[in-house]
């Protein structure tokens, strides 16, 4: 029983990180139909900037907002300097641009911050809390809690703010949105900033657990992508459910089956889901007019 609980804790913690990464994918996808392969790098950048600030002697509570801010600036620059100039190129070209951007970001980080891993101190100590025979790190509570708050925040943003509604309109029909006066270019910039914000926040709360290294984004980004596809690309709820599902599955497979198959399972699952429900669990059924 305590074993099961331990696996659940592990799954929820990593799952929350994947979920936030997946949510970033969803937001940019909605605004532009682009799958942003630099999403994982936003997670890394958030952690890396925070580490850099703390190394300069900035206290952690200040370093975190600075890290988020710097990542959002990086997200905005990515959109302005790489995506916007490509103009109306087709989606595949834009996706390839994001892959290039991801390599570029990792290269710059290697030069500026080095190739070594960096540890980030836990926010509230390293002493694990015993819960029903399992051990839970206070940092896991931070990760799960922050993820929950952000999900609510993003949900409200899309439901109650003008910008959020405009972004939803864009995802439904870009041309129609443009016709009713929505500045789609501006919305694209906002979506990149938001995705960077989500990534940075996830990266920072997770950093004490994952540690930070320049290529951290590759794996976290890939898992986030799997989660987003699993849940249904573009669906907010889908991203969260997909993220938690991938995290829990990994933990259970590593625990009950074999750790050797842990990474394979989400990928196998994605094949099955895409065969049965091509849109993902919560994705809209794609209907083509013939």
């Amino acid at each position: 029983m305590s074993e099961l609980l331990q696996f659940v804790f592990s799954g929820l913690t990593t799952g929350s990180i994947y979920a936030l990464s997946a949510l970033g994918f969803a937001i940019i996808y909605n605004a532009s139909r682009v799958i942003n392969f630099a999403q994982g790098d936003f997670l890394m950048l958030g952690g890396m900037f925070t580490v850099a600030c703390t190394q300069l002697g900035v206290p952690l509570y200040l370093a975190i907002p600075l890290g988020v801010l710097a990542t959002v600036v990086a997200g905005a620059l990515l959109e302005r300097l790489a995506i916007a100039p490509a103009g109306n190129s087709n989606v595949v070209s834009l996706i390839i641009i994001t892959i290039g951007a991801s390599m570029f970001i990792e290269g710059v980080v290697q030069i500026l911050f080095g190739k070594n891993q960096h540890a980030v101190p836990s926010f509230s100590g390293e002493t694990a809390i015993p819960v029903g025979g399992a051990m839970l790190l206070p940092q896991s509570l931070w990760v799960i809690g922050v993820a929950a708050v952000i999900v609510v925040f993003v949900g409200c943003f899309f439901r109650f703010t003008m910008i959020g509604k405009a972004m939803l309109a864009m995802s439904a029909n870009r041309e129609a949105a443009q016709l009713v006066g929505i500045n789609t270019r501006m919305m694209l910039l906002v979506s990149f900033c938001m995705a960077a914000f989500l990534g940075a926040t996830a990266g920072i709360v997770a950093a004490p657990i994952t540690m930070v290294v320049y290529d951290l984004g590759q794996m976290l980004g890939l898992k986030g992508f799997v989660a987003a596809t699993l849940g249904g690309m573009g669906s907010g709820v889908g991203a969260i459910v997909g993220g938690l599902l991938v995290g829990l599955l990994e933990a259970f497979v590593a625990g009950y089956v074999s750790s050797a198959y842990k990474d394979a399972v989400p990928f196998v699952l994605i094949i099955i889901i895409l065969l049965v429900r091509p849109g993902g669990i919560f994705g809209a059924k794609s209907v083509d007019r013939v």
Partner: peptide, 11 residues
């Protein structure tokens, strides 16, 4: 590149 190895260590 794993970031969490608690299930294995739990075993």
């Amino acid at each position: 590149k794993d970031t969490d190895i608690t299930p294995q260590i739990q075993k």
